[in-house]
Simulated assay, not measured.
Amino acid sequence: MKMHASRRQWLKKIQNIGLLTLGAWFSPLTAFAKKEDAMKVIQEITGGKPVIDGKVKLVIPPLVENGNLVVLKLSVDSPMTVNDYVKSIHVIAEGNPLPNIFTVYLTPRSGTANITTRVRLADSQIVWAIAQMSDGKFYQGSAETLVTLSACTELV
């Protein structure tokens, strides 16, 4: 009988360790990215090149009741000609589990560099839009929002 009791105790301890590990993995402190993570993603996108403020206008509501569907509008000031156009736009959110929300690739045939979409925001945070131009330069715009009901609470 003692053998069964000790095996049960051993299994209970293993179960408790597993729950502690699982709890630490899904802890809100580890689920969300940090500003440093967002800055690292921006460095990876730009390859360490300087990012210039301007040309990019990012609009999100300053106060959002529900982070599940946040309207995001962005535009980049560009003539979108063969010699001068926006190659890509990267949207980065410092508080989401994965900071790089989405990337859009454009060509001169796109006509304009205007995008309206909906995104999920995990928490109150700053969101950046980084535009890579055809000449290799990077421009940025940002917006800050306060989210009262967070989205993205699970790791994907």
Rank of each mutant, 00 (worst) to 15 (best):
A93W: 02
R8T: 13
V70N: 08
T30Y: 01
N100D: 14
I115N: 01
R7W: 12
A113V: 05
I14H: 07
P79Y: 02
R8G: 06
L19M: 13
H90N: 13
L11K: 13
V59Y: 10
T148S: 11
K34F: 06
M3T: 13
K35M: 04
A122C: 08
M3N: 12
V71I: 12
P28Y: 02
K49L: 13
V82L: 12
E94K: 03
I45G: 03
P79S: 05
Q43V: 06
S124A: 04
V104N: 07
L29W: 12
A31M: 15
C152E: 13
M39E: 15
R7H: 04
L20M: 14
G48D: 03
D37M: 02
D84L: 03
T81F: 00
E144T: 15
A93L: 03
D53K: 15
I60K: 04
S134D: 05
A122R: 14
K34R: 14
G54T: 07
V91A: 07
F32R: 15
V82D: 15
A131H: 07
D135K: 08
F32N: 13
K34V: 12
L72K: 07
E94T: 03
Q43P: 00
R118W: 01
I52W: 04
D84F: 00
A113T: 06
F32Q: 15
Q9L: 13
Q43Y: 06
C152R: 13
T107W: 02
V119N: 10
V71G: 10
K40Q: 15
G95S: 12
G111Y: 03
M1T: 09
M80N: 03
V156T: 02
S27T: 09
P61H: 07
T117W: 01
T103C: 02
T116D: 10
P62D: 12
T117Q: 06
F102E: 11
V104W: 11
Q9D: 11
I45V: 14
G67L: 09
T30F: 09
E36W: 00
P50A: 10
E36H: 01
V91P: 02
L106R: 05
I130K: 03
G54Q: 08
V41Y: 01
G95T: 05
